[in-house]
Deep mutational scan, measured.
Amino acid sequence: HESKLSILMDMFPAISKSKLQVHLLENNNDLDLTIGLLL
C-alpha cells in the first residue's frame, strides 16, 4: 500500500496531493476508493 501511494503521489501535482491525503483520511486510508475519486 505504501509504495502504491508513493507512486500515486508522484503522479499528481501538489494541490491534488493534498486532496488525496484528505480523501485518504476521510475514507480511513481506502486507497482504491480514493483512486476512484481522483480518476
Rank of each mutant, 00 (worst) to 15 (best):
A14G: 12
L20R: 01
K4E: 12
N27K: 05
N28K: 14
S16N: 06
L31P: 00
K4W: 03
Q21R: 09
L5T: 05
D30M: 14
L38W: 00
S16L: 04
L39A: 09
Q21H: 08
L38R: 01
I15E: 11
L33H: 03
E2G: 08
L37D: 11
H1L: 15
E26Q: 07
N27F: 03
M9P: 00
L24G: 00
L24W: 00
M9E: 11
K4F: 05
H1W: 13
D10P: 03
P13D: 01
M9V: 12
K19M: 09
L38V: 05
I35V: 10
L31E: 02
S16E: 09
I7W: 04
L37M: 11
V22F: 13
L33Y: 12
L24Y: 03
A14E: 14
S18R: 11
I15K: 07
I35R: 14
K4N: 11
S16V: 05
L39F: 09
F12R: 01
K19S: 10
H23T: 10
M11S: 04
I7F: 05
F12V: 00
D30H: 07
H1E: 15
I35E: 07
I35H: 04
M9R: 11
K4H: 14
F12G: 00
A14D: 08
L24P: 00
S6V: 08
D32N: 14
L8W: 00
P13G: 01
I7K: 14
H23C: 06
F12M: 03
K17T: 05
D10F: 03
F12K: 00
E26V: 05
I15R: 04
K19Y: 04
I35K: 14
I35A: 11
D10C: 08
L25R: 13
Q21W: 04
D30T: 01
D10Q: 06
N28L: 08
L37V: 10
E2H: 09
G36S: 14
D30Y: 15
H1T: 15
N28D: 13
N27W: 04
M11E: 05
L33V: 13
Q21S: 13
L38D: 09
K17W: 03
S3M: 11
N27P: 00
P13H: 00
F12L: 02
S3E: 08
N28R: 09
E2A: 08
H23S: 11
G36W: 03
S6K: 09
D30V: 03
D10Y: 15
I7L: 11
L31W: 02
A14V: 09
S16A: 11
D30E: 06
S18W: 06
N29F: 10
V22L: 09
K17P: 09
K17Q: 12
L24S: 00
P13F: 01
D10R: 08
N29C: 13
H23P: 02
I35G: 03
L38P: 03
K19F: 08
N29H: 08
